[in-house]
Design a protein around this nucleic acid. Structure first.
Lengths: 204, 204, 204, 204
DNA sequence: TATGAATGAGAGTTCATTCAT
DNA sequence: CATGAATGAACTCTCATTCAT
């Protein structure tokens, strides 16, 4: 009834599992089981575990880039204040991660395993984002020293991503439903407040 | 001095590899090869892959706790300003991570894979740190809302850890030697500047 | 003219591949790919890999028998000299192999793998040829001892077939184009010379 | 009790099976079963199916070269007649094949599949033999035309090898025990007679 | 303290084949 | 006539682990 329903089920299972356990923590059998499909079908539809993983990575990276391309473009051209433009980019980033919480873990898995065969693939996909953001920040920030744009890139990433990766671990210790909408809103407010604090410090 | 030299070599290899590739990305053969030791010796000395991994995790967590216990105690008792006491804790945290850069990746691996059999072990080890830090912050910060202590715990972690996990990935794009001493100093300055910015915002 | 074009393409691909790599060295996918056809079509047209293989074998064996039946019949009835009749048969054999060079490899594959499920099939197809040739030779040669007809059957086969099976292997070391028409003519001359040498020795 | 008894059993099974069915006609399970050993042990001892196959090939090729090196050397230096020297080489070749009948099939398998990944390996191992024999023959024979040495190389190979590859196929049709010692002697006599016939024809 | 051999389970992958459309 | 999807068996190979020595 659905076009490609099976392939979609497999892809969804792969997405879920790879995000949660990383490439080497997942077997093709796990994926097939979760998709209620025979193992051989995974290979029929996707050729290999590698290709399937790449498909998952690519679709997230594409979505990530798509989500940030417009805000980044706006930030480069608009006449709004520096603060507003940074808010725009960080907000977009955070919104994307918030809507794709699993992706945060996928990224951390990838980055933490940053020497695997995938490293070049990751770099190729994330580097443009770093470049664009760095370019925007360069307008005001120096390109070296402790206020260099790249430090902000790292700090923003940590601030934005970590809530979503820590939630499954510390969620139990936090107010129930660390990923409920009210709590997510609270986190968004925190990040915005933090960005404001940084902007204040920069301006003065 | 020769005492336990073999076990130490195995442990060192395991440490290195687990940090870089995570539990499931490493085989006992990998460890034995890197330690220039026969595979069976790994089992002789450590019993199982699990126990070896736990040993690596435990020694890092112990060191982590040891590194922060004194600063946290001081922060609870000293009469220094809130800002100074936060600086004390974050500085200690950052120093420890800086001295154990690999550990940053180990933590991210663990947290990203936050559903594995190890989750309880991790929680048990990291929770006390969160609690202590939270307690210190509670003195000034509310326990809910976007300024809740736990948000700062997450943000601090992200800011402190991510530079070291991103370095192997983006290092090539950054000034040569992202992990050289001058660059590490630069990062420490950035983090301190950031904490100051946060304190400023809180105080006002 | 278009009639059966697809089935023919499959058959041609199967022919080529089976001759080059033998039964177990070829997969149905290989055949389908080389024929630019979907895998399922191979089964639609030929039922199974076995039947397809049998079809290839049979068509070669049929052609082989057809090519030799007349010369063998002539050899049995004509009043020409023994030497001329042997020349007639060997020439026909060699001409056939020369025109179906791939078949030489198919035969060697089959014979070398002479214990497979196909052994009876092969025997049934090649035995009549051996019998006929043996019959012709019996006229002059004994049926036992080192001049027994069957030894000549084996030797003729080796002399005739091996040039074509060795060509792909040693071709690079031989004058360019071991399978070019001039070189093939040279080989035919060699074989005829050899048969003459054998006849001389027999007669004397 | 025996050094390396297990590895030897595996090697013997691999030898037997590869000779009979060729590389792609044999699975590692087949080998393990025939050696009464668990599958994983084959990999423990030999690393991979490829390496095991290469070991079998290499040991035969080495033995082959060793068996012919002395006769070929003698043929190059001795003052015996051309005929005697050719007899010496062909006799040695035939004796070796006779003592390693399975090897004949291995060679035919390899040559028939002459395009596989092994082709270079085969060429590298058999080419020296062809060169040496060719060199001896060159003394009397031209290097082109239908009496070129390479034609005799091919013909000798066919005559020598084919009896042993055909035996399992046609053995049933031949006097019982085509591979019994008396029959083998008969074959040796045939080949010697054939070589004499060729020498006679060359000399005249 | 050390190790070579052994092993069952499971990894990713390909296979020939079937079937509904 | 043609095909995309599906499947169970078998493939090569790696895994963590055990054990006799």
């Amino acid at each position: 009834m659905k076009e490609g329903a099976t392939a979609d089920r497999i892809l969804a299972a792969a997405d879920d599992l790879f995000c949660r356990r990383g490439y080497s923590g997942v077997s093709v059998r796990d994926i097939a089981d979760q998709a209620s499909v025979r193992k051989a079908l995974v290979f029929y539809h996707f050729g290999s575990k590698d290709k399937l993983y790449e498909k998952v990575l690519t679709s997230y990276y594409d979505a990530h880039r798509a989500a940030l391309s417009e805000p980044l473009a706006t930030a480069s051209t608009s006449s709004a204040s520096f603060r507003e433009r940074v808010h725009g980019v960080v907000d977009s980033y955070l919104s994307f991660i918030d809507a794709n919480a699993r992706y945060a873990r996928l990224v951390q898995h990838e980055v933490a395993g940053g020497e695997s065969a995938w490293i070049d693939f990751i770099r190729a996909n994330l580097a443009p984002l770093q470049d664009s953001l760095t370019e925007v920040l360069h307008e005001v920030l120096p390109d070296r020293g402790h206020l260099a744009a790249r430090h902000f890139f790292v700090s923003f990433s940590g601030i934005v991503l970590n809530y979503y990766t820590y939630a499954p671990v510390f969620g139990a210790l936090w107010p129930e439903g660390a990923l409920s909408e009210p709590m997510r809103q609270e986190r968004r407010d925190h990040v915005r407040w933090l960005v404001d604090a940084m902007m204040d410090a920069i301006e003065e």
